[in-house]
């Protein structure tokens, strides 16, 4: 019997996939048979390296790199034009690219606000816009947006980041309703405290305080989040849309 987890023959785009959660997801989707299109902001050596790594770990499976800023309408248009030209389809979109900038409310600048919303919100909308049109052609698709625990419960010093991640939940719920008739599912994953380069930048004290707030008594791994993404990408969740799945080990903020 064919596994419900198989992604054989599917084309998946994972934004922000040269490191962290994006890279873990790209690997896991490829291991399950998907052709994975990896994305980074610039055409870096790391992006090229990731494509080669994917090809080698997946026994020569196809993989391609796309360098573009997810919030740039022109760049997104170009990327989807290229996907259409080569593959004529897209089955899975993981909107993972995101940035984190902490700032107390009184110190939020308009530049910070613009930068964070450009990537974390505009980027998600633009990618969903083009992806859903490619998916609508064959009346099937799964979009997975990365929110965050902060977008659900908030945190001091994260008005901007939390706002952007709460926006991801709102746009996920609305897109899920809009796209359900075309059999396109839209769900969000809300990671808690995950071991990525992004959280390693926290001051040691803050890092330990956050780690202590996790009921499962360990920091999450990028693979923990990637597994939730695989669930939404696969047919295991064929009748699931408009959901926000926390992957946080029972973290309390």
């Amino acid at each position: 019997m064919e596994s419900l987890l198989t992604l054989q023959g599917k084309i998946a785009l994972v934004t922000g996939s040269t490191r962290g959660i994006g890279w873990a997801s790209a690997r896991l989707l490829a291991q399950h048979g998907a052709t994975v299109l990896v994305n980074g902001r610039s055409d870096s050596d790391l992006l090229k390296q990731r494509v080669e790594e994917l090809k080698s770990i997946c026994g020569g499976a196809e993989a391609e790199g796309f360098a573009f800023d997810v919030g740039s309408a022109d760049a997104v248009k170009e990327c989807y034009g290229a996907i259409f030209k080569k593959h004529k389809r897209l089955d899975i979109l993981v909107n993972n690219a995101g940035i984190l900038e902490d700032s107390l409310l009184g110190m939020v600048t308009s530049q910070t606000l613009a930068r964070v919303f450009h990537v974390n919100v505009e980027g998600v909308v633009l990618n969903m816009q083009y992806a859903s049109r490619l998916m609508a052609r064959h009346q099937n698709g799964s979009i997975i947006n990365l929110s965050a625990i902060i977008g659900r419960v908030g945190n001091a010093g994260q008005v901007v980041y939390g706002g952007s991640k709460a926006a991801v939940i709102g746009l996920t719920l609305s897109a899920a309703k809009e796209l359900a008739p075309a059999n396109i599912r839209v769900n969000a994953v809300a990671p808690g405290f995950i071991d990525t380069d992004m959280v390693r930048q926290l001051p040691r004290e803050k890092f330990e305080e956050r780690a202590r707030s996790i009921k499962m008594e360990r920091i999450g791994t990028t693979e923990d989040v990637a597994r939730a993404i695989l669930f939404f990408a696969s047919d295991l969740s064929a009748y699931v849309t408009g959901q926000v799945l926390g992957v946080d080990g029972g973290m309390l903020i």
Partner: peptide, 15 residues
């Protein structure tokens, strides 16, 4: 309509 046009002519329209 957009989906039907894109399908009919095998094109992808800009937003």
């Amino acid at each position: 309509v957009v989906a039907a046009i894109e399908q009919a002519f095998d094109i992808m329209m800009e937003t």
